[in-house]
Design a protein around this nucleic acid. Structure first.
Lengths: 332, 332
DNA sequence: CTGTTAGCGCTTTCAA
DNA sequence: TTGAAAGCGCTAACAG
């Protein structure tokens, strides 16, 4: 018995127009104090609660953002969503969630569904929509912010970590520890990030006098199973492998398992470095050396960008969050 | 350039009434095929997309559920939410998410915000709202399903795991392995679940000829830090402790750390058992023996219950999911 | 099968 | 400072 009470009910009982009640509800100062008091009293008596659906229809704003992630069960995205929801809540927005299991069609469906729901903006995380289809997808009147990748034509903006530098941090760390046969369990191949990271590596190798071919990149699924496969294949191909850098911490955990299975000690025989520093990273054995991201911040910034955009406020087109090496036992 | 197009625009261009267009959009069969074709054609030309806000105002249904959890960053809740979202999506519903960090006021705020948004139902997970305030909170026209606790007056239903039995499974497992000084890192005290679990233990102890006082329950925060504290305190109080059952897997991970810090081997000196079997459980070292829950199923059933309720379909008032012991290295 | 008439509950003009 | 009228985009309930 709450939403049955409407503005009109309150207005009638208070002996004013609906407009006046609306003003009170919306903290419009143009209401005589006594009138306001009377209205507030009736609102209390009747237990009136505004119907935001009606309000949204009239104002064309829903105070809602949609966020689409591959899988909220992945601790990385859970953190990003948490950051987004925290920021959104603080600004009076709510968050609609959709998981896509990395299926582009489902991303598209989610975006459309969010649009029909008239969300004020969408945060599209680590999209798998092919690079070339992205501009078309983003060409819509709903502002979309990308996370986990670079800005692309049509997006309001993009927020991502400096993964190129992150990869280099990890590799340099291993090189400094005299590891020379390094493998990169690279996650999904073909993505835009992949090429850039390899390029970053080649540039660094050239300038630092390393042989670029020292780094073998092996594509893999971005989960423990993928890391396990990639690492065991790498060790099979080359028993000399003494360092593995992984696309993320989940992959790293799988890689550690594979090493142990292959009779290698971590880190003595093979050093393993993860990426993103999920909570899990410090809890496994050995604790993971990893390149940390500000995941919570990522979600937060995405929301901030959307809000700035909606307020026609200037904002960066691309925010790149710093990465930092967190040294733990898996690669001391 | 999508949501600017309305039903009326389509109707005009197609030379029919808005009602007819509405029928086509809603797959109402009472439309002549040719008319339908014509309308669909115009819809395509104009790129018409329905505005669900307007639809919701008219139908009084938003096809949205709100889910309130303590923290989506907790893998347990991430799984529950995933299950709920999967089920919801399959049924045409969307999910609004809110994190409360176990703060009752924020749960209340979330429920109200969801109601103002006219959600069709709410899933309230592991609420911290005091038992005695719950009926009042639930006395609202928005159907609310509880998870992680028993049904209470006012709720549409409740879905939870059989934790009483789960605790017994864990304890019995330890007793069978000749562990005699068992500690229960019990999570938050005072909750309704706590008393019930202790009662279950006492009943079992009586009937099985064990001394009920063999089980020391120590309240603790439901995270690794809490487990670490509880376990180190337990070991300080009684160095003979040879078994620790934990409120959840996060607590168990902390407990394992505390044991190692105290110079104990796990499981040789102290066996540790967790609860809920999050993905993490099998990845830590030693892998955790734990009492598994169907977390994904929990969210799924909560949604199913809500949907059944909305369809005035009969459904259980309380669904209790089975728990099962998953034996791994921490307590072989 | 199709159209007309009313709203859903709120906000937005524009007057008063 | 307040109110009346109109409408946001859609569907419900009748007619025809």
């Amino acid at each position: 018995m709450s939403s049955r009470v409407t503005l009109a009910d309150v207005a009638q009982r208070a002996g004013v127009s609906t407009q006046t009640v609306s003003r009170v509800v919306n903290h419009n100062p143009a209401v005589r104090p006594e009138t306001r008091a009377r209205v507030l009293e009736v609102i209390g008596e009747l237990g009136y609660r505004p119907n935001t659906v009606a309000r949204s229809l009239a104002t064309r704003r829903t105070m809602t953002f949609g966020i689409v992630v591959p899988d909220i069960g992945n601790p990385y995205f859970a953190d990003v969503v948490r950051g987004a929801e925290d920021a959104a809540r603080g600004l009076g927005y709510q968050i609609l969630l959709c998981n896509t299991d990395q299926m582009p069609e489902r991303e598209l469906t989610a975006i459309e569904a969010f649009q029909e729901k008239q969300v004020d903006g969408i945060i599209l995380c680590s999209t798998r929509i092919p690079e070339e289809d992205l501009p078309d997808t983003l060409r819509t009147h709903t502002p979309i912010v990308l996370t986990g990748r670079e800005w692309v034509e049509g997006a309001v903006g993009a927020v991502h970590a400096d993964d190129d530098r992150g990869l280099l941090l990890a590799i340099k760390h291993l090189l400094q520890r005299e590891r020379r046969n390094i493998v990169f369990a690279a996650g999904r191949p073909g993505g835009p990030g992949h090429a850039r990271r390899m390029r970053a590596w080649h540039e660094f190798a050239d300038s630092a006098g390393y042989c670029a071919e020292q780094l073998v990149a092996i594509p893999c699924a971005t989960n423990p199973a993928g890391g396990q496969e990639a690492a065991s294949q790498a060790l099979r191909d080359n028993p000399e492998v003494d360092g593995i850098v992984c696309f993320n911490d989940l992959v790293a955990i799988g890689a550690v398992h594979a090493c142990i299975e292959a009779g290698k000690r971590v880190p003595e025989d093979v050093a393993v470095v993860g990426m993103t520093d999920i909570a899990l990273a410090s809890l496994v054995e050995p604790p993971l050396t990893t390149v940390g991201h500000a995941k919570h911040e990522l979600g937060k910034q995405a929301v901030a960008m959307l809000v700035d955009h909606l307020a026609s406020r200037a904002h960066e087109r691309e925010i790149v969050l710093k990465t930092e090496l967190v040294v733990r036992a898996s690669a001391p």
